Simulated assay, not measured.
Amino acid sequence: MSLPQRVKLVEVGPRDGLQNERQLVPAAIKIELIERLAAAGLSAIETTSFVSSKWVPQMADNAEVLRAVLASPRRRSQVSYPVLTPNLKGFDAALEAGAQEVAIFAAASETFSQKNINCSIAESLKRFAAVLDAASALEIRVRGYVSCGVACPYEGAVDPAKTARVARQLFEMGCYEVSLGDTIGAGTPASVQRMIEACAALLPIDRLAGHYHDTYGMAIANIYASLELGMAVFDSSIAGLGGCPYAAGATGNVATEDVVYLLQGLDIETGVDMEQLLAAGQFIAGYLGREPASKAARALLARRGAGC
Rank of each mutant, 00 (worst) to 15 (best):
V150S: 15
S147H: 11
A186N: 07
I196E: 02
C175S: 08
R141M: 14
A161C: 07
V192H: 00
R165A: 14
F171W: 15
M195F: 05
A137M: 14
V158R: 10
P153S: 11
G185L: 05
L180F: 11
Q193P: 03
G187Q: 04
V131S: 09
Y154K: 06
G174W: 00
R168I: 07
V150D: 13
F171R: 10
A164V: 08
V166G: 02
D133R: 15
A167I: 09
E197V: 11
G156D: 14
G144M: 10
G156M: 15
D159V: 01
D159M: 01
A198E: 00
E172N: 10
C175K: 01
G185M: 08
V142Q: 09
R194P: 00
R168A: 12
V166H: 00
T163H: 09
A157W: 10
G185V: 09
A167Q: 02
T183C: 04
I196Y: 01
K162F: 03
P153T: 07
M173Y: 12
L132Q: 04
P189S: 12
D159R: 01
E155L: 09
V131M: 13
A164K: 02
R168Y: 04
L138A: 10
S147D: 10
E172H: 13
L138W: 04
D133G: 10
L180Q: 04
E172R: 14
T183P: 00
L170I: 09
C148V: 14
T163Q: 10
V166N: 01
A200P: 02
L180R: 05
Y154L: 04
A198V: 00
S191G: 08
L132F: 05
R141H: 12
S179F: 10
A167R: 00
M173T: 07
I140Y: 13
A167S: 10
T183V: 05
M173C: 09
T188P: 04
S191K: 11
S191H: 05
R165G: 05
G185F: 06
K162I: 06
V142I: 14
S147Q: 08
C175D: 09
E172V: 09
M195P: 01
